[in-house]
Simulated assay, not measured.
Amino acid sequence: MDRDYIIQIVSENLRTVRKENHFTQDKMAEMVGVSKKNIIQIEKGRTLADWTTTIAICAIFRENKTLHNHFGGDPMEIIEQTVQDVTIRPQEKTLGGHIMWKNINEHKGFKLQRNLISKHFRILDEENYRLFSTFDAEVAQEMWKDIEKTI
């Protein structure tokens, strides 16, 4: 995924996200930090949200079902991957990837998974904490080999 695709998804679903959360256009504009006119233009498909607005929407509504369905999980994780390419650090506990993830490899409770929608990779530890994420398949495989050797 790239920025343009993320912006497109968020822009196309802004109205749905707003309505699911029972916000008026005025309240949405205030929360996101843009004008009501800007919200109206995005919702009518006349313009796309900019990158900053997109990040704000994803951060504020990171638990929104519509965004989760379009991104295959936490939209902020997708943004983080788009900006950083690779993330290597213990992160939040996940549910283990039973819905939108395909297990590629498993070793002593650790899992290499690929998201069915966004196609990015992640490695979970034995307690389902995300340790690593990337869109790069080669980097994911290299990291997985290191984990198999270490554990």
Rank of each mutant, 00 (worst) to 15 (best):
17 V>H: 05
133 S>V: 12
88 I>P: 00
97 G>L: 01
125 D>F: 06
118 S>K: 02
88 I>C: 07
25 Q>I: 13
136 D>V: 11
122 R>T: 00
59 A>D: 14
71 F>A: 09
41 Q>R: 09
123 I>T: 06
136 D>A: 09
128 N>D: 14
89 R>V: 15
89 R>E: 14
90 P>W: 04
66 T>N: 05
14 L>S: 01
135 F>P: 00
77 E>F: 01
19 K>E: 09
44 K>L: 15
53 T>M: 15
3 R>T: 04
15 R>M: 12
34 V>D: 08
18 R>V: 03
77 E>K: 10
115 N>E: 01
118 S>Q: 01
63 E>A: 14
73 G>V: 07
58 C>L: 10
45 G>D: 08
146 D>F: 03
94 T>P: 02
26 D>I: 15
67 L>D: 04
76 M>F: 05
110 F>V: 10
97 G>M: 01
96 G>C: 01
59 A>N: 15
42 I>F: 10
97 G>I: 05
77 E>Q: 09
105 N>V: 04
62 R>I: 08
40 I>C: 12
106 E>A: 09
15 R>Q: 13
90 P>I: 12
46 R>A: 10
141 Q>L: 08
21 N>V: 10
70 H>F: 13
72 G>F: 05
13 N>A: 11
20 E>F: 04
124 L>H: 02
29 A>H: 00
107 H>P: 03
48 L>P: 00
60 I>H: 02
37 K>T: 15
150 T>C: 15
13 N>P: 09
78 I>K: 00
59 A>V: 15
142 E>T: 09
17 V>N: 09
94 T>A: 06
62 R>Y: 10
7 I>K: 12
148 E>Y: 01
101 W>Y: 08
4 D>K: 00
8 Q>Y: 07
2 D>L: 11
23 F>H: 08
68 H>Q: 09
74 D>C: 14
32 V>H: 05
75 P>E: 03
20 E>T: 11
130 R>L: 11
129 Y>N: 13
34 V>G: 13
115 N>H: 02
48 L>E: 08
94 T>F: 00
107 H>Q: 01
106 E>L: 12
139 V>Y: 02
38 N>G: 14
28 M>E: 02
2 D>H: 00
16 T>Q: 15
124 L>C: 09
93 K>N: 13
33 G>P: 03
23 F>N: 12
41 Q>S: 13
120 H>T: 06
70 H>V: 09
45 G>M: 11
146 D>Y: 01
24 T>S: 15
21 N>H: 04
